[in-house]
């Protein structure tokens, strides 16, 4: 059973923030190891150092920028990324136990779509705009398979409430009999947080795309939002497919944290091992492979449930 807690509202951003910093540090460590840097501990602190630098950096301006929308983009991304985790249970506690929790999660993560586009649009710069429309195209590729796998998990439990989905996995975790849905879910989490290999919206070939003109606090907030979105996506994999807080010996909240950390680390690690997947190629594989595969998975689950 999941109980809702009021103090969770205060705790949730802290936990997400710690995970986000941890993920960024892990990412920086992997990058340093590839580059042959001999001091990995210092590399792990690189994200914090650059965050401090961004805090004091003066904002760059661009000509005729849509300042309101541009500045709002980072805040919207960060807030949506935090709100997406509102329905994710930590052990048997959750901030919100909505009857349509899965839909809430999906809705918040689509708000992030708008945020990234606004960041690309607002700067009034060619490369930012290119990054923005790359992300919209990316959305066309990952969103449908993503929604189908969310539906598949909900089908398996016969409910859109996240607590019911966890309860339905008491005997068998969904990852065991919905492996395709789980794999596609992880892919789509990487894509929605536009991290590697789905980082075409912010890739170096267009000077950082959406990030090209973002500077100072705006850039910090936007990047933080991106990491928190990745954390929120990784955390939701636990109640959807990995049995929530279920596990031997340890308390359920600790199991949730451990599983989240493992999923997050796997995502960051895997994302660095593959070159950036360009939109036209992602579109192709999404519509030709991922959508049919997720539909077949949903069909299989429906038949089992009946």
């Amino acid at each position: 059973m999941v109980e809702t807690t009021a103090w969770g509202v205060l705790l949730l951003p802290v936990i997400l923030g710690l995970f986000a910093v941890g993920a960024a540090a892990f990412d920086a460590t992997l990058a340093a190891r590839a580059a042959g840097v001999t001091a990995p501990r210092s590399a792990a602190l690189a994200p914090l150092r650059s965050a401090a630098g961004l805090l004091v950096q003066q904002r760059r301006r661009t000509l005729a920028a849509d300042t309101l929308l541009w500045r709002a983009a980072g805040m919207v991304l960060l807030v949506a990324a935090v709100l997406a985790s509102l329905v994710t249970p930590l052990g048997h506690w959750a901030v919100g136990d909505l009857s349509a929790g899965v839909v809430w999660f999906n809705a918040m993560e689509i708000v992030a779509w708008a945020a990234v586009w606004l960041a690309g649009w607002g700067a009034n710069s060619t490369f930012s705009l290119v990054g923005g429309y790359r992300f919209v195209a990316q959305g066309l590729a990952y969103e449908l398979p993503h929604m189908f796998v969310l539906t598949t998990a909900a089908l398996g439990a016969g409910s859109l409430r996240v607590a019911d989905i966890v309860a339905a996995q008491q005997d068998l975790w969904f990852v065991v009999w919905m492996p395709v849905a789980f794999a596609v879910y992880l892919l789509s989490v990487l894509a929605m947080a536009f991290s590697g290999p789905f980082n075409h919206a912010v890739s170096g070939d267009v000077a950082g795309g959406v990030l090209a003109e973002l500077s100072g606090v705006d850039r910090l907030v936007f990047l933080a939002g991106r990491w928190v979105l990745l954390v929120s996506g990784a955390a939701m994999a636990v109640p959807l497919f990995l049995g929530g807080g279920a596990g031997p010996l340890l308390p359920d909240w600790l199991w949730t944290l451990v599983k989240t950390a493992l999923v997050l680390a796997a995502l960051v690690w895997a994302g660095r091992r593959v070159p950036t997947i360009r939109m036209e190629r992602f579109e192709e594989i999404s519509w030709m492979v991922l959508i049919p595969a997720t539909l077949l998975q949903a069909l299989f689950v429906s038949l089992v449930v009946i």
């Binding site: 990058a31 590839a34 580059a35 590697g196 290999p197 075409h200 950036t276």
Partner: peptide, 9 residues
Amino acid sequence: AGWADAAAV
């Protein structure tokens, strides 16, 4: 091509 680690090596 976006493969930062292979490039770094």
